[in-house]
């Protein structure tokens, strides 16, 4: 018997993602984004994102079905991001998923966006080793997780106490006169720069600090002060060195804490996810440090690191396989869904 075909919906931020997964096999990953409409605001505007989700929903489903070469009537289960995320945005995907599940007469699984970021790696690298440590870093989240059982048990170890890692990239990019979102232009500029040129602070790395929590607010401010001081002195700002040194500080803290979490918990598998996991320096440093520590590093391709529908389908597929009960008919969205709730 073939494994169930799972249709996944993701609308927690500005990406309308619809994906199809069978078992651990990625069949399609259709995406529409409203990013261009948010650029001039320097951040995602929830109402603009929600309007765009509604417009894109049915066409994106059609693309996902066409790419996978299947019919809607072939779908065996529907999965949807129930949170965390922007409420208005989440509700468009949630309502669509509930309607498709009703109309196709298949079970519905409301899932946690963060756990889905972990699950997506199974589409590329096969079943996850359990337990694994997962580090999720994006514009919306920065979390370190212990994952004993992806279908049932995810334990939060640490998270950012101020800005998300991706937000720090956006704000530093703004200081350097780069476009939003800041991740890609900083990564590009940093290639021409020296990551050791400026010693920017590493937040929460003191001996008495929470070992798995992050803080990027101080780093962001330090970069801004450094650049402003240069500008005030009438000196040119070495943009490439600033970008590289900032990026080095982020990658250093993230990888050090992730490796420490693995060591402390006796876990030898680390999974990265989220948009910031697409950063080239973070990937390189994680590889280096994991190799030195004897840890197997798993990083999905950049396309799968950022928000998409396939990751939701991947987690849905995992829940179906594990025999987890589907969601109640009154399933709702929860903008601050706790990370230890995998399926709602």
């Amino acid at each position: 018997m073939t494994e169930p075909l799972v249709l996944g919906f993701e609308t927690s931020c500005d990406e309308t993602g619809v994906g199809l997964v069978r078992g651990h096999t990625l069949l399609s990953d259709a995406l529409a984004t409203s990013m261009a409409e948010h650029e001039r605001f320097g951040g995602v505007v929830p109402e603009i994102a929600s309007r765009a989700h509604l417009e894109a929903m049915v066409p994106t489903v059609h693309r996902a079905l066409a790419e996978a070469g299947v019919q809607a009537s072939d779908v065996d289960a529907v999965a949807v991001t129930a949170g965390p995320g922007l409420t208005g945005a989440l509700l468009v995907g949630l309502a669509a998923a509930k309607a498709y599940a009703l109309a196709l007469d298949v079970p519905l699984y409301g899932v946690n966006h963060l756990a889905a970021h972990v699950a997506v790696d199974e589409l590329q690298h096969g079943p996850l080793a359990e337990p694994s440590i997962a580090m999720l870093v994006s514009g919306g989240h920065s979390s370190l997780l212990l994952v004993p059982d992806l279908a049932r048990e995810v334990v939060p170890l640490g998270r950012t106490i101020d800005d998300a890692a991706g937000e720090a990239f956006d704000k530093v990019a703004r200081v350097l006169g780069m476009p939003f979102p800041g991740g890609p232009p900083i990564d590009r500029a940093a290639r021409e720069g020296d990551g050791a040129a400026i010693a920017f602070p590493r937040g929460l790395t003191g001996p008495r600090d929470a070992p798995y929590d992050f803080s990027f607010s101080g780093l962001k401010t330090a970069v801004a002060r450094w650049v402003e001081a240069r500008s005030r002195a009438g000196e040119p700002v070495p943009v490439a060195d600033v970008a590289a040194s900032f990026q080095e500080a982020v990658a250093d803290v993230l990888t050090a804490k992730a490796v420490r979490a693995c060591r402390d918990h006796g876990v030898d598998h680390l999974v990265l996810g989220g948009g910031v996991a697409a950063n080239s320096r973070l990937r390189a440093l994680a590889e280096e440090r994991c190799a030195a520590a004897g840890i197997v590093l798993r990083v999905p391709s950049p396309r799968l690191c950022t928000d998409n529908g396939a990751m939701v389908a991947a987690l849905g597929s995992r829940l179906v396989a594990a025999g987890v009960a589907p969601s109640a008919p009154e399933l709702g969205a929860d903008s601050s869904l706790p990370i230890d709730v995998v399926g709602v």
């Binding site: 109402e47 929600s50 309007r51 989700h53 509604l54 929903m57 049915v58 489903v61 059609h62 809607a72 409420t87 208005g88 509700l91 468009v92 309502a95 669509a96 509930k98 309607a99 498709y100 009703l102 109309a103 196709l104």
Partner: peptide, 19 residues
Amino acid sequence: PFTGLRVGVVTAAAIADAR
């Protein structure tokens, strides 16, 4: 109100599309 309004509209669109 936009948020609630979209729920009905996307539900109608999705049911119609699926059937």
